[in-house]
Design a protein around this nucleic acid. Structure first.
Length: 485
DNA sequence: TTTTGAGTTGTTCGA
DNA sequence: GTCGAACAACTCAAA
């Protein structure tokens, strides 16, 4: 019997432009194609609820795509190294392939795996399957990891140097896997919410899987790309790519996205401007930068990048946290965002900033609490992007927003949701208010409130904090931090 | 070595 | 209503 190759799928649930898959097929060996679900990953964390829902459907889609090509996706549950040990012991495996991940604990685990099997005489090959540049590739002139986005992005030198995406293999040959401990069906992974099943809003919004990712990209390039530079700030418009969950699970490669956007410009297909392209690519750049930070910061989810924030006087207030997380702060743009998140597993980028700023600055609640909430509820919750962005808002991150930048939720609403349609969609009890009043219902005339059916404090909450007072309190808190340093 | 210029996304105040 | 300055220095990256 000829020997086999083991191909591990992780955060790269696609067949197109998947370097580990391409290398495995090129080895000409029959493949054991495996996804190992680790419920207790060391160092990084168990998936949040929304991400688990996504993963279930993404795996189902991947399994179908693999079957169409004659292969089989084998699922396992448990500790990856133990399951791989068992696979290697029970089968004649001579090569192992995977795409790399960048959380320090993941890097360490992969290094250990590689060392162990190379010692046993196996070929072990890993690849870059998810980034334009890996974290160690981008350095300052004197060799340090970059800590400021703009020079980082410049130093990435991507203008004419992103490899073309590779097509999916046409045929896959799988080896029959012997019955081993840990082999499970998709259902056995228990990724779907049961009682209650809260996933209907996610179902309505998303199509996890490679085909859904490609469709989302095409839709964006056709309908949202033109005017992106400006409109990406408008939660009331379909103007962002919404590719983040697909990228999170690697259902589409970053190179595919990069080149498709460039092609849409050069072929004049989308009528987007070069500025639209530049801004869109720099958003991809922020994703790269977050992974760069994650790799170089030992504990991005827990530790302030700027250690001077370690003594910040955060307030513990479960009642206020609950109001924020449920979308009951009394500030419509904040509440709309938090409810969008709860219902759809997603929140528009502009509104993420507003809601995050509100938690951290208006309520003075630790950014880690907000990060955990987003981790559990976002379908695109990403171990790099999520903490890096929270730290950016809080001011404790790399290249972070200055502390005195405190969003005014009324102004932000008026500016980026001028007709109030985003608020109306997710806060329907305010639906009948005028555009004038909808971002600050407490300023509306009693008559308008009455005819709109709004009773403040009853059908919709009064503001849980006063903006002006909260702003001054936040500035004082940040000032005290500086003085104590 | 020292210097220089720059740094995602804002708000408020006062002229 | 519009506009510029203040908010506060500090650190990074490169010349």
């Amino acid at each position: 019997m000829s020997d086999a190759a083991l191909l591990l799928f992780r955060d790269d649930l696609r067949l197109t432009d998947n370097p580990a898959l391409i290398a495995a097929v090129a080895s000409k060996k029959p493949l054991i194609i495996a996804y190992i679900h680790d419920e207790k990953p060391a160092g990084d964390r168990a998936l949040g609820g929304a991400s688990q829902w996504w993963l279930h459907h993404s795996l189902a889609s991947l399994a179908r795509d693999i079957e169409k090509r004659g292969g089989t996706l084998q699922l396992f549950k448990g500790t990856p190294s133990k399951i791989i040990d068992r696979l290697v012991a029970d089968h004649s495996i001579s090569a192992v392939f995977w795409n790399r991940r960048y959380h320090p604990s993941q890097v360490e685990a992969d290094k250990a795996l590689k060392a162990r099997y190379e010692t046993k005489g196996l070929t072990v090959k890993s690849f870059n399957g998810s980034l334009l540049r890996e974290p160690w590739e981008v350095k300052s002139k004197i060799g340090n990891p970059m800590k400021v986005f703009t020079p980082y992005w410049r130093a990435s030198r991507l203008d004419h140097d992103v490899a073309q995406a590779e097509p999916a293999p046409k045929k896959l040959t799988s080896l029959e896997v012997k019955k081993i401990n840990g082999a499970v069906s998709l259902k056995d992974l228990n990724l779907l919410p049961q009682k209650p099943d809260w996933s209907s809003g996610l179902q309505a919004e998303w199509t996890p899987g490679e085909a859904g990712a490609i469709k989302r990209l095409d839709d964006f390039l056709e309908n949202g790309f033109k005017g992106y530079a400006e409109d990406r700030n408008r939660p009331d418009r379909i103007s962002t790519s919404r590719l983040s969950p697909h990228l999170r699970f690697g259902e589409i490669s970053i190179k595919q996205v990069w080149h498709a956007a460039e092609l849409a410009i050069s072929s004049h297909k989308s009528r987007a401007s070069s500025e639209d392209l530049r801004v869109f690519q720099s958003e991809l750049g922020w994703r790269e930068f977050a992974h760069h930070l994650l790799f170089h910061e030992p504990d991005l989810t827990r530790t302030n990048v700027q250690r001077s924030f370690d003594g910040f006087p955060w307030r513990r207030d479960e009642k206020l946290f609950k109001s924020w997380s449920r979308g009951e702060t009394g500030y419509p743009i904040v509440d709309a965002g938090m409810r969008e998140l709860w219902q759809t597993g997603f929140m528009h980028n502009r509104v993420r900033m507003i809601t995050a700023s509100f938690l951290v600055k208006h309520l003075l609640i630790d950014w880690r609490r907000g990060e955990e909430w987003f981790w559990d509820t976002l379908v695109d919750a990403d171990i790099a992007n999520n903490p890096a962005s929270w730290q950016w808002v809080a001011g404790s991150g790399a290249d972070a927003a200055p502390y005195f930048r405190i969003f005014n939720p009324m102004l932000q609403g008026e500016k980026f949701d001028p007709d109030g349609n985003y608020v109306r969609k997710f806060v329907p009890e305010l639906k009948k208010l005028s555009a004038r009043a909808i971002h600050a219902p407490w300023t509306a005339k009693p008559l308008e409130l009455e005819s709109a059916g709004v009773i403040l404090g009853k059908t919709y909450p009064k503001p849980i904090v006063d903006h002006d007072a909260a702003r001054i309190r936040a500035l004082d808190a940040y000032k005290s931090l500086k003085e104590s340093a």
